[in-house]
Simulated assay, not measured.
Amino acid sequence: MTDSTPAASDEAAQNAALQKAVIVGLQPGQPAHVLEEALRYAKLLGSPLVVVHVDVTRFVTYEDPDGYVHSAPIDLNLDAGVAEFEDVQEAAEQQLKTTDIVWTARQLVGDPALAIKQLAEKLDAQLIVVGTRKRGLGESIREFFTGSVAARLAHRQYRSVLVVPQEEPVPDEQEDVWSE
Rank of each mutant, 00 (worst) to 15 (best):
P31W: 05
V177D: 12
K117W: 01
L18N: 09
F85A: 10
A91I: 04
T104S: 14
V109Y: 05
A150I: 01
G138I: 15
A154L: 05
L153R: 11
G67N: 06
Q166R: 08
N77E: 11
L18T: 03
P112H: 06
Q118R: 05
V60D: 01
P171S: 04
P73F: 10
N15R: 09
P6H: 11
D100T: 15
F85W: 05
D79P: 05
T2N: 14
A42F: 01
F59G: 11
A125V: 03
T61A: 10
K97W: 09
V54D: 06
A8K: 03
T98H: 13
A154P: 03
T146Y: 09
L119F: 02
K122E: 04
Q126M: 11
N77L: 09
V60L: 02
R142F: 10
S47W: 01
A38D: 12
A154K: 02
T61I: 08
V109N: 08
P65V: 11
M1K: 07
Q19Y: 00
T104F: 00
E93C: 11
R152N: 04
R159I: 10
N15D: 10
L35H: 07
E84A: 15
Q94M: 08
P169S: 10
E93Q: 15
P6N: 10
H53L: 07
A125E: 04
V82D: 13
Q126N: 14
G81K: 10
K134E: 13
L96F: 11
M1W: 06
V50R: 00
S9M: 06
Q174H: 08
H33L: 02
F59A: 13
T98E: 14
L45H: 06
V22Q: 02
P65R: 12
A72R: 13
K122R: 14
E175W: 04
A92V: 03
E84Y: 04
G138N: 14
I128G: 13
P112N: 07
G29F: 08
Q94P: 00
A115M: 02
S160V: 02
L76T: 13
Y68H: 15
Q30D: 15
H155V: 09
E37H: 12
L26W: 04
G138T: 14
L26R: 03
Q94W: 00
L78Q: 14
R152T: 05
G29S: 08
T5Q: 07
Q118S: 04
A17Q: 09
Q166Y: 01
S71Y: 10
P165W: 06
D75G: 00
T2A: 12
D3Q: 15
E84S: 13
A7F: 13
A42I: 00
S179T: 13
V22R: 01
S4H: 15
D100H: 15
V130T: 06
Q118I: 00
A21L: 01
L39N: 05
G136P: 01
A8D: 03
D111C: 00
E90H: 15
E11N: 08
K43W: 07
V60Y: 01
D79H: 09
L108Q: 00
I101V: 12
P28Q: 04
L39V: 01
D100M: 14
T98P: 00
G67C: 03
V52I: 08
Q27V: 12
N15S: 06
T5S: 11
R159S: 09
E37P: 01
Y68G: 12
T146M: 09
E93G: 13
V102M: 14
H53T: 07
V102T: 15
D66T: 02
A17D: 05
E121I: 12
G46N: 03
